[in-house]
C-alpha cells in the first residue's frame, strides 16, 4: 500500500506560486481560501529559500486528535481527509496543525468560521469518487483517476514532489547524491524516519 507524501525541495523552488494557483483552479476552492501557499524565508537575501506548503498528511495527525467531532480519517494511501458534513468550524485543527493547513471561509456573522477546507492530496472526501457532491465540497479526486496531485504534477522545477513516500525519497536521494548534501529537504529526517523521531 502506498504511503502518500509531499516533499518540497528548497534548492529548487523558485516561488512561482503556480502550485497555489493550480490547486485553487483545479478544486475551485472557495473565496479567501488557499489550500497551498509558498513561503519565502530570508526574502531578498543571499540565502533566500522558498517552500511550498499544504497539508502534510501526518501519520499521527494533530488535527484529527483534537477535532471535537472526530471528522478526520486516513485513507489506505495515508492521505488525511475530513468530512465536511460533520465539521462544525471550531478551528481547533488550525490551532493544532504544525503547518497552518486548515483553512476557514468566513461564512457566518461576526467573522464566524465556516466548514474547514484543506488540501486533500487531490483525493476528495467521503462521498463517492468523482460524484458531484464530492466535487462541490472537496474538489476533484485525481487519485481516483490514477493521477497524482496537480500542484506537484505541474511544478516547473520539480521542486514539489508528491506520491508514494518510497518513490519520493528515491528521487530525492538521487538529488542528494548529485549535490553531495541533503540540505534541500525540509525536516527530511523527520518525515521519512520510520520511528517518526529524530532531532530536527
Amino acid at each position: 500500500m502506498a504511503r502518500m507524501k509531499f516533499l518540497c525541495d528548497a534548492e529548487r523552488c523558485i516561488e512561482c506560486n503556480a502550485c497555489v494557483t493550480a490547486c485553487k483552479n483545479e478544486h475551485e476552492v472557495e473565496w479567501g481560501v488557499n489550500r497551498r501557499r509558498v513561503v519565502t524565508i530570508n526574502d531578498g537575501e543571499p540565502n533566500e529559500k522558498s517552500l511550498s506548503v499544504a497539508c502534510m498528511h501526518c501519520t499521527d495527525a494533530p488535527c484529527a486528535a483534537v477535532c471535537p467531532v472526530d471528522c478526520f480519517y486516513t485513507t489506505e494511501d495515508g492521505v488525511v481527509l475530513h468530512n465536511k458534513d460533520a465539521c462544525i468550524g471550531c478551528g481547533y485543527c488550525l490551532f493544532a496543525c504544525p503547518f497552518g493547513a486548515p483553512q476557514f471561509p468566513q461564512d457566518g456573522a461576526f467573522g464566524e468560521r465556516g466548514k474547514m477546507d484543506k488540501c486533500t492530496f487531490c483525493n476528495g472526501g467521503p462521498e463517492a469518487d468523482n460524484s458531484a457532491e464530492e466535487r462541490a465540497k472537496y474538489g476533484r479526486n485525481r487519485i481516483a483517476e490514477g493521477k497524482l496531485p496537480l500542484c506537484a504534477e505541474m511544478c516547473s522545477t520539480k521542486a514539489l514532489l508528491a506520491g508514494d513516500a518510497n518513490e519520493v525519497s528515491d528521487i530525492f536521494r538521487e538529488r542528494v547524491v548529485a549535490r553531495g548534501s541533503n540540505r534541500g529537504a525540509w525536516g527530511e529526517n523527520l518525515q521519512f524516519n520510520p520511528l517518526g523521531g529524530g532531532k530536527g
Binding site: 479567501g32 501557499r37 509558498v38 513561503v39 519565502t40 526574502d43 504544525p98 503547518f99
Partner: peptide, 16 residues
C-alpha cells in the same frame, strides 16, 4: 517568512 497568499500568519511555516 513572506508569502504571496494573504491571510493571518500565512508566512509562518511552523506553528510551533
Amino acid at each position: 517568512g513572506l508569502s504571496q497568499v494573504q491571510g493571518a500568519e500565512s508566512g509562518v511555516l511552523i506553528n510551533a
